[in-house]
Design a protein around this nucleic acid. Sequence first.
DNA 1: TAGTGTTGTAAGCACACGTTTACATACACC
DNA 2: GGTGTATGTAAACGTGTGCTTACAACACTA
Lengths: 202, 202
Amino acid sequence: MGEPRRRDSARTRKLLLETARRRFARDGYAATTVRDIADEAGANVALISRYFGSKEGLFEACLAAAADSVRGTQDGDVALEGLGRSIARGMAGVSSAHGLPEVLLLSLRPSGDEQAERARIRTLSSYAERMAALALPEGAPLPDDLHLRGQVLLATALGVAVLRATPGLGPITSATEDQLADALSDVVSALLGRGPGPLTQP
Amino acid sequence: MGEPRRRDSARTRKLLLETARRRFARDGYAATTVRDIADEAGANVALISRYFGSKEGLFEACLAAAADSVRGTQDGDVALEGLGRSIARGMAGVSSAHGLPEVLLLSLRPSGDEQAERARIRTLSSYAERMAALALPEGAPLPDDLHLRGQVLLATALGVAVLRATPGLGPITSATEDQLADALSDVVSALLGRGPGPLTQP
DNA sequence: TAGTGTTGTAAGCACACGTTTACATACACC
DNA sequence: GGTGTATGTAAACGTGTGCTTACAACACTA
C-alpha cells in the first residue's frame, strides 16, 4: 500500500463523524454548528450534507457509531460484583473518549427528531434493565422496584459522565479508574445487592 | 389593595423568568430562543432585553432564582440518615417543578458565557461538599476521597433529574417519593456511610 | 386636563445558521 | 493523453437568531 490518497471520501467521512461525536458530546446538539465540525475536521461544510444528508443525519450516525463502539469495548459477561469496576473502566478507561461517557452524553441531548428520540430512550432503558437483571437468577422476570434501581444506577453513571466532562470541577474530573471503581462498586451493591432496604452484609 | 394593574412590570418580569426557567431546564440554553420564551409568557421579545439585559442575563437570573427556591425548600439541617429522603423529596415533592431538579437541569447546560459557567460550577461543587460534609463531625476537613464520593452522590441526583425528565422512560419517571427515597437512601449510606470500601453495617 | 415617566408593541438590523448550488480539481480508466 | 466520475471548494440562499430602535398606550401627578 502506497501513500494515502489525497482525496479519500471514506477518510473524510470518518473524520467528520469523529469530530461530530466529540463536539456533540461536549457541547450538545444545538450548540454545535456544522461549520464548527467541518472546520475542526479540516473539511468543507457541504460535505456534511453530502455524506450524512443533514445535521440531524450526522447526529444519528454519531449515536449509532457510539452505541457500536461501547458494544465493542463492553465486558462480555460481568457479574454483579464486577459491575462497579466495569462502569468505572468505561468512564476512565482508554476507550473513554469513544466509550461509555460519549453514549451517555449523546443520549441526554434531545435531538428534536422523533425517531432518534425513541432510539435514545430504548438504549437507556435496555442499559438499566441489563444491569438490574444481574441481580437476579438468569431469565427471572424483572420486578418493577429492581427496574427502578437499575435506572437509578444508570442515573449515577450518566451523572458521573456529565460531571467528569465538566472542567474545573473537583476530584471527580481527575479521579482514576480505581477511585471511581471504589465508589461505584458501593453504589452497585447498595442498589442491586441482595435484599431491599439498607444493605445487609452477608 | 384594588384591582391588579393592567400593566405590571413586576408581574411581566416574573412571568418571563418562570417561563425561561421551565424552557431552559427542559430544552437547554442553546435550543431555547428568546422569542419562544416571550411568546409563551405572553410578552414581547424586547422586554427580555429591557428586564434582563440579554438572553445570557436571563439565564443567570434563572440560575439564581432556581438556587434560591431550592434553598427555600431545603430541609434546615438534615442528618446523613435523612439525606436520601431529602433528595427524593426534592425530586418528587410538590416543589419539583421549581426545585432541585430544575437547578440540576439548568446546571448541566453550559451557556457559553464565562461568568455563568463559573457560577454553575461553584453551585455544583458546594452541593457535593455540603453533602459529603454530613459524613464528618462538624468542622472537620473534607478528605479528597470523601469529596469524590459526595460528587458521585451529586451525579446520582443529577442523573435522576435528567432521567425523570425523560418522558416514556420506565419506572423512574413515575416513581413516587417513597420509592425514590428507598433507593437513594441506600446510595447515600453506601457512599457516605462510615468506613471506606464496601459498606459495613454498624 | 396637560404633562411625564413607565410599560408594551411592531418593525427592523446585522449576523449566524443549515443547506444548496455552481464550479474546480484530482483520480480511475480507456 | 483524453474523458467521465468522484471528491472537494467557494459562494450564495433563505431563514431564524439575539438585540435595538422608534413609537404607541397606559398610569400617575399636578
